[in-house]
Every structure is written in C-alpha cells, then in structure tokens.
Design a protein around this nucleic acid. Structure first.
Lengths: 368, 368
DNA sequence: CGCGTTATGGTAACCGGTGTCATTAATCTT
DNA sequence: AAGATTAATGACACCGGTTACCATAACGCG
C-alpha cells in the first residue's frame, strides 16, 4: 500500500498564471509583466531600459515573462514619459524619386526592428512658412532624429532652426566642407561627387577627347559646385580646362539638359564629348544629339551622374557616376540611432564611374 | 489739485497673464490654456475636439488664448489617451520608385496640416514573418489608418490581419472586383487599367496594325490580369485576338521586357507593334528592337503602361498609359482621414492614353 | 552586534492629454 | 415660483510608461 507523495499536487486548471493571462488575449502592459513576475513595474521598466542595478536573476525571470507573453512597451506612453518620440523624420525638397526611395531604403535598413519608425516629410522651400512648418513638425512630433537631404541640407537657416530645437540631425551633402567657409559643425554624410567627376573627366580624356562640353547644375546646389570643381580638376590633370564656349547651365532637369545640349552641339567646332552633371540632363543631351543626327557614342560620347534607372535603360546605355545612396541613408540613420555620446560625425562615401556604352574613343578629326 | 481717477490703474508689469506666460517661452500645455482662460482643462479638451456642448462664448475665449500662446496639443499624449496615434502607415512591397513617390505625394497632399503624419513601411512579402511584422507594426504604433499598395494590396491574408486588428485601411488596386470571386469588402481606390489597355489596343488597330505582340506582366499581379483583359477586349472590338505566338510573359522589369521583345520579334511574320504591360518592359522591347536593327516607330510601334519618367525621356518618346497616381494617393488618404461613418468606399480612377512618338501607322506589308 | 553603505524594490507623482460621472447653471414646465 | 429638464462645466481617475525619492534587505566592518 503506497502513500501518495506529500509534494504539492499540480492543480488542474489554476495552473500557470502566465497561461491564464495568455488565455485573455489582451495586449500585455508593463503592469501585467510586473504582476506575473511578482516585481514592481519600476523593476520591469529598469529591465526594459537596461538599467544596471537589477539582480541578474531578477532580470532573467522578468525577461522570460516578457518573452512568453509577448510584451512590447507602448511607444506612445514611453515617448510621453521620455518627452521624445521614437520617430525619425526625413525632410526633403527634392524631385528625384529614385534618390528619395533609395535613401528611404537605406534608412529603413537600419531602422527595421529597432522600434523606430520613419516619418517622411517633403517640404516646399519656396513657401514663406517653410521654416515654421518644419519647426512645428519637429517640435510637435518630438522627433528623435532628423535626416536632411540636399538641397535643403545646405540651408543655413534650417540648420539653425534644428540646432535651436536641439534635435539630433544629419545632413546628406556633396560638399565636404568648403575650405573658405567656417566648417559646418553638424553630423553629415558626404559623397565624394568631386572624385566621381574627376574620374569622368579622366575617362573622356583617355579616350582621346579634347574638346569636351559641360552641362552644369544650378549654382545654388552644392552638388553642382562640387561636380563642376571635380570635373575641372580632372581636366586640369591633363592640362585641359573647362571651356566656357561649350558649357551651359541646366536645372538638373531633362528639358534643361536638352536645351543645353542643343546649345553646346550647335557651336562651331562641336565637342566630341559632353559631361552632364546629372543623368536627367545627360539624357536630354542624348535627345538633342539624336535629333541633330549625331550618333552616340560614335559622334558624341556622353557621361551623366547619378546612375538613375534611366542610365541603364536608355539605348545606348549611359556611362555615369554612381553614388552609394542606400549606404548613405543607412549610415545617416546609424549616426542618429547609435548616438555614441552625441558626437558630430562626418562619414564620407566614394563615387564610382560606371562605364557603359555611351562613351567611346574620340572620332578622328580630319586634319587637312 | 486733481484727484487721480478711481478706476483701476493698469498695473505696470503684472499686466496680462498671457504676456507673462509668453515671456517664459515654454511650450504651452493644456493646463496653461486652462489656467489662463480660467476654465478646467477638460473644457479646453472639449474645445480642441469640437465637442458640441460648450458655450460659444467660452469657446471663443479659449480659442483666443490658444491662438495667442500658440498651443498645440501633444500628439503623443493625445494618442495615449485616445489609444490611437495620429499616424498613417504606407505599407508596400513594390520596386517602382516613381510610383511610390507619387503615391506619397498624393497622400501628403491630404495629410499636410491635418496633424497627421505618414510613416512609410516597405516590407518583404517573401519573408516568413511578413504578416507578423506588419501586425506588430500596426498594433504597436496604433496607426489611425493604413494604405496598401499593389501587389500586397491583393494579399488576402494581409487583409485579414488588418481586419482582425480593426484598423481602417484602404487598398490601392487595379482590379475592380472580380465578377466571380466574392466582392472584397474593404475601402479601395481602383484604377481602370482595363480601360487604358483598351485604348492602347484601339490606337494600334486604328493605325493599321493587325499583328500585335503582347508582353504581359506576372500572372500573380492583379494589374497584369486586368491589363491583359483590357487589351484583349480592345482587340476584340476590332475582331482581333491576343495571339499566343507573339505573346510573352515578363516580370515587369526592363530585362524581362528585353527578353520578351527578342522572343516576339524573332518570330516568323514579326508583328508590327507591341503592347507591353508596363513601361519598363516596353523600354526593354525598345532595346531588343534597336539591337535587331528595327526602327521605332518606323518598323515597330510600341506602347507601354505607367507613364514613368522613362517614357517621356526615351527617344523616340514612348506612347503609354497614364494613371493618376497622385490623385489616387490623395483620395486614399481622404477616405482614411475624413471617415464619414466608416463606410467602405470604392473610388475609381480613369486611365488615359498618352500618345507620343513610338507609335505610327503600320508599315505597308509587301503583298505579292 | 550595531552601524553605515550599498544594492534593490516599492510608492507616489508625473508626462499631457482623455473618459466618466457628478455638479452647477440655464431653460422650460405647469 | 418651484420643480423638472437640459446644457455647460468641473473633479478625478486613467492611458502606459517614466523619474524622484524613500524603504528595505544585504553586506562590510570595527
């Protein structure tokens, strides 16, 4: 005759309080965690925020509960208490869809799974209330970080507003500090546009081109200045210069590139190559050339900048300069999210020449 | 000897409490408003939320204070109390940058100034945790609305998840209810892709084309089915049919269009025109044609779909079908924000044929 | 063993709004 | 004019977390 063991019998249904809780299928709160773990909510809070003074044992027990009931702290409540949201703002005034989307992808690469979300906020820098709108947006949303895209990333007033608001922000820019102007003391992600343009110039000169047209971007854009300078430096290395006679300013648009191309190609002693400061304008120049009966690259070599989808789809495919936009976006998000001690960073990214089919050796000019 | 008037003299600096407050340069809270207006914060809250039972007089007085001190309710706090945020989520899995950006612009047209912000959330529908991720996102952020873009707007499981979460959402889609399948009972913004394709077929037939190639999209896309059907209907109106011999399926990509073009154009009795289900593939067909020494539109007419930037930039410019993406985005946001009684809406948008230079009368076939 | 320290956990107040319900003022009845 | 009804307002708890501060337990030490 065996006596049942005196150990506590497992009660049939009042079993596990965690199971009980799960049955209710309610979104877990910090109070639930605290109750189930038999600690105070303050302790749970400490654990969520990696506060040091919690016994390892306690931490593990609580984390186990958190995992089991799938607790995730409410960003709104947390944000309210912290006086900041868990949102990153992407502010831009830029018409290039591919650029925007690539940048977003880069940012989202980093943001994903971090509990932070991305709010997009295009703006109109020509509006009177431009600065006020952005101030309101940033202040009201209590953004935990802002990413600024060119061209407004160059806007001094805007930078000042963000500094007043004391919100962490990163600028994406082509300009790596003007040697004259005071250094901009903000975090920035910089692309070496200049380098890419030097390579473009190199490439053309090495193909034998000597008379090279240039379509530059609007002077108000930092990138336009950088690209001009890079192109000039590239030419200079070969003893050449930008020739004003075959240079035209465009607006970074297809139409303006078309017009610039017409102008340049109708010069006496027409150039055998054109470097355009972006792909849109390069494609515009294509159109001008084709309309004039010139073949690309037989009669005219063309190089663009951006490596937009157009570049690889046009026929013949456009030689261009590629910037690692997505990487830059990811890096920008990283400097905001992993803010080690709030330092101001400058991250620099190289450009790369992508040689396709729109560049060929210069046609032999007939010299009698 | 004059006696000072007994009227209350204006005290020099204890003047206006509102002025006092403004001097402190602090972000105003609802408590500040309440104190200055000498009402309870609940009353201020009523006014913010357009609650009816507030005396007009009170309302005006409080609104005056609100305007003077520039009070704007904190979205986090409000969201916490309301148990929903003031964020709209844009969820997509779509590689077309221009499409995304246009949609964003449309949504932002509406959202701007409404106190609502847009959170972008691309996703990977091939991931195992795809649905879980979206559920977490929507639930945790307590979104006040979700906009779904194709192709995931067609995903039944996803729709079910959103319905379980009881979050208002709108689907953007090309399918206007399949006559066989049960009607989808959600709000939707629908484009008449079919109509656009009919017009494309019309246009080609009227130009004298009889043998017309067709590059269709992936069968898994609702838009691909719609476009095929529209094209077929368009042909049928002229007594023609889609000819499987000169039809190929592509992946909506440039490369797939190129391959499809090669295949179709290498058929005996080559077609004099090709209709591609999107611009990317149409441009791929361009490339195939040009490589084979065919001229567009001299030897071959081509029509695309989407009116992407490529369409107008390529040479010769591509005839294509335009969808009012931005308007659709705005409308989607409207149905979420102006939710009159939570009705399920279906908004329909027309497509329009944009005739450019890639279509011309069919070359006279030599008939001996 | 008593004391001061240091770890840890608990309590209350707060972040900035909202809901519920009671209370007061205004208006309508008869 | 008193009582009933309705409109306008306020008191207070609460949304789901946080910090500030206090209480307790554990520990080292003379």
């Amino acid at each position: 005759m065996t006596v049942p063991p005196q150990t506590q019998p497992v009660k049939p249904s009042a079993a596990d309080p965690v199971e009980e809780f799960l049955k209710r299928r309610k979104k877990a709160t910090i109070n639930d965690v605290a109750a189930l773990a038999r600690v105070s909510k303050k302790t749970v809070s400490r654990i969520i925020n990696n506060s040091p003074s919690v016994r390892e044992e306690t931490r593990e027990a609580v984390n186990a509960i958190i995992a089991r009931i799938g607790f995730r702290p409410d960003p709104q409540a947390r944000g309210l208490a912290f006086r900041r949201s868990f949102l990153l703002g992407l502010i831009y005034d830029n018409p290039n869809a591919q650029y925007i989307v690539n940048m977003q992808m880069g940012i989202l690469d980093k943001v994903r799974g971090s509990g932070i979300e991305l709010v997009v906020h295009p703006c109109d820098k020509t509006s009177d209330s431009f600065l006020e709108e952005i101030r309101d947006f940033v202040e009201l949303q209590r953004l935990s970080g802002v990413i600024l895209l060119p061209p407004i990333a160059e806007n001094r007033q805007l930078i000042q507003v963000l500094e007043e608001l004391a919100v962490p922000f990163v600028r994406i820019t082509a300009r790596h500090g003007d040697d004259n102007s005071p250094p901009i003391k903000t975090s920035q992600v910089v692309s070496r546009d200049r380098m890419g343009c030097q390579q473009a110039a190199d490439h053309l000169v090495e193909l034998g081109h000597r008379r090279i047209g240039f379509i530059e971007g609007p002077h108000t854009y930092a990138s336009a200045k950088e690209r001009r300078q890079g192109f000039a430096e590239g030419l200079k290395a070969h003893g050449l210069d930008i020739d004003p006679a075959v240079t035209a300013e465009g607006a970074y648009s297809f139409e303006s590139g078309f017009e610039a191309g017409q102008k340049i190609l109708s010069q006496p002693d027409r150039p055998t190559a054109i470097f355009a400061s972006n792909d849109e304008m390069a494609i515009g120049a294509y159109k001008a050339a084709l309309q004039m009966g010139l073949s690309v690259p037989g009669d005219l070599s063309i190089i663009g900048f951006d490596d937009s989808p157009l570049a690889s789809r046009i026929y013949p495919a456009l030689t261009t300069v590629r910037l690692p936009i997505r990487d830059m976006g990811r890096t920008a998000a990283e400097t905001l999210i992993d803010q080690d001690n709030h330092r101001k960073h400058t991250m620099i990214f190289d450009a790369a020449l992508v040689v396709r089919d729109s560049t060929a050796p210069a046609p032999k000019t007939f010299k009698p």
